[in-house]
Write a protein that binds this DNA or RNA. Structure first.
Lengths: 202, 202
DNA sequence: TTTTTTATTTAAACACTGTTCAATATTTTT
DNA sequence: AAAAATATTGAACAGTGTTTAAATAAAAAA
């Protein structure tokens, strides 16, 4: 059945086409300012067509949401060859922050915008869980090597993730204007390094 | 001019009436799900009337935004009599987290929703700056007493605020389902206490 | 090749949104 | 009581996500 095959390819092609248009609009204008009509005109189709390939706006968003996590995880996975878990942990934080700086819009879609991950069965949710396990694994390894004594690894992991997200979330909303004379990048970097300073004493 | 006086009172009364209706709807339904028609019908007026007292939806939002900060600051100010700056700093974090737990909706309006604080001249922005100065003041005092040696107080302050906001932001989006068997409150509390543990060593 | 069936696309419609504005009602001043 | 100022309204505008009946394009069967 060569025709059925090509049909499937066509469908995937259109799926990708919509997603490409959507990515462009989403990352340029943000969630709220992205409309189905916007996406449709970006790829020169009528708004209704999209609904032949996607259930709704949310489904498109979720695909991009997943993309963002895959991109982040691929950058984190590079650090697995570092060896020392504490060095890897510290580097992971830097990678995370750099990811947020370089992919502000993705970061917004992934962690800030409200639509995301309504049901804990979604694929984007599973991949987020993977990221948390990744962090928790490192913390546990650190503890095996004598770091973070008498600390519950789960709470400690949650705390570390909170620091990273806090830094990046404030960045994404540029709420850091109160620290005059310091750029966002300086704040994020030096803020994180002062946290690393604390970690090294613990 | 007793009449002009009453006129002014009437105007303030209506202003408050709208704000009360808006608060009810905003805190119950969130920013996106709150519409001008929603607010209007809550107080049995036509949607257009609101525009006689408020420039737009954003202006109403900003008043509530400010309210939230005033509420938070009033709770923080209580801690000024603590005396020891480090104890006050630790307690401030707990108060902040508790505020987020008890006023999840306010917290969302204050720190998460995108509309907020577009211009750095707004009153809500000034009060946010006050909160940051409050934190920075404590950190500086701590350093005078020998804590946080060799740390830049501004970056250190930013880092502490990031931890707090990170914890609360994750809470507000209930992204913490990955830590099974632990309630949000446990996560926030114990996550923060493990950070305090780090602070005590620094 | 022509007809029938299926797949894809579209324009129009629905119920919503924030906001504006001319018309109306109310109140105050003359 | 008439005129002027103030307050309120409902309709309208341009936008939103989504549904759906109709139109078109493509494929299969005759």
């Amino acid at each position: 059945m060569g025709i059925a095959e090509r049909k499937l390819e066509d469908k995937q092609e259109m799926h990708a086409k919509i997603l490409n248009g959507a990515r462009k609009v989403f990352l340029a204008k943000g969630y709220d300012q992205t409309s189905m009509r916007n996406i449709a005109s970006e790829i020169n189709y009528s708004p209704g067509s999209i609904y032949f390939y996607f259930k709704d706006k949310s489904e498109i968003f979720h695909e991009l949401h997943k993309e963002g996590f895959q991109l982040l995880l691929s950058q984190l996975k590079v650090l697995e060859k570092v060896g020392d878990p504490f060095e890897q942990l510290k580097a992971s934080g830097r990678v995370f922050i750099q990811f947020a700086q370089e992919n502000k819009d993705y970061y917004n879609l992934m962690f800030i915008v409200d639509d995301s991950v309504k049901d804990s069965a979604s694929e984007g949710f599973k991949i987020a869980e993977e990221a948390i396990r990744y962090m928790h694994g490192m913390v546990t390894e650190c503890q095996l090597k004598g770091k973070f004594k008498n600390m519950d690894t789960e709470y400690f992991t949650f705390m570390i993730i909170s620091v990273l997200h806090g830094i990046c979330a404030l960045f994404c909303k540029h709420r850091n204007t109160s620290f005059v004379g310091k750029t966002d990048e300086e704040l994020m970097h030096n803020g994180y390094e002062s946290f690393v300073g604390l970690l090294e004493k613990g």
